[in-house]
Amino acid sequence: MTSINNIYLYGTCTIDLFFPEAGIDAITLFEAHRIQVHFPSEQTCCGQPAYTSGYPEQARQVALSQLAAFPENWPIVVLSGSCAGMMKHHYQHLFPEDHPQHIQARQFSQRIIEFSEFLHHHLKITLTDYGQPVQVALHTACSARREMATLQSSQQLLSQLNNVSVVSPPYEEECCGFGGTFSVKFSNISGAMVNDKCSALEAVNIQHLISADCACLLNINGCLAKRQKTSLQGEHIASFLRHRCLPNKPYP
């Protein structure tokens, strides 16, 4: 157990609007480990959608408002690999050296930690599995895999669960096709990618689909539901861990 007492939680706009349980579950896990969680009400979005669409000016405005929302020097734990990647690696492009907020942005970026990485590397959490034996697949967002390199953290967390075996679907490393506005601008290509992702998931015998990135889940879950070949719906790794390891702990 480490000496981290206070953290900020960065919920992300996707979780705020579509997967609020993941946020509650993450808080439950943290509080069970005696960490005080602070959730600033001023947090909105990291700015990634505008940034990847070629509108850095609009992204910068939003990023500025986020810089101001986390005043204490606590770690900022982010419930999504790609939002974490945006804030950790791309804010430096939005606030280059000649920008007045350059240093503030750099310090902010250094405090960014992705959720599973926080549990595994910083909290060094020990998990006890109370669930039934299940087979699961872990979907890792591209930015978590390539930019944040947090795939191993998620894998390590799941490997602590005795009754959980992780299955690798075909083309596991391939993108689910979300890519922000790409999914709408090039819907036919994105649609083909997410359909392939879903058929790969349908081809393996799993009871749970887990990811540390809800934007991918929004995409994959939507397609799984449309295809109606399985009742499988992906869930955030925070929710999965809470249900397995703290089954009787009530919601805060």
């Binding site: 609007l17 349980e21 999914s183 709408v184 994105s190 939507g222 397609c223």
Partner: peptide, 23 residues
Amino acid sequence: LSGWTSYRASLVPASNTLHQRLK
């Protein structure tokens, strides 16, 4: 929703946002 729902079910937000629940 053009493009999105050609390949996916429609987007349904949660009944309460995380912000609302934490408040």
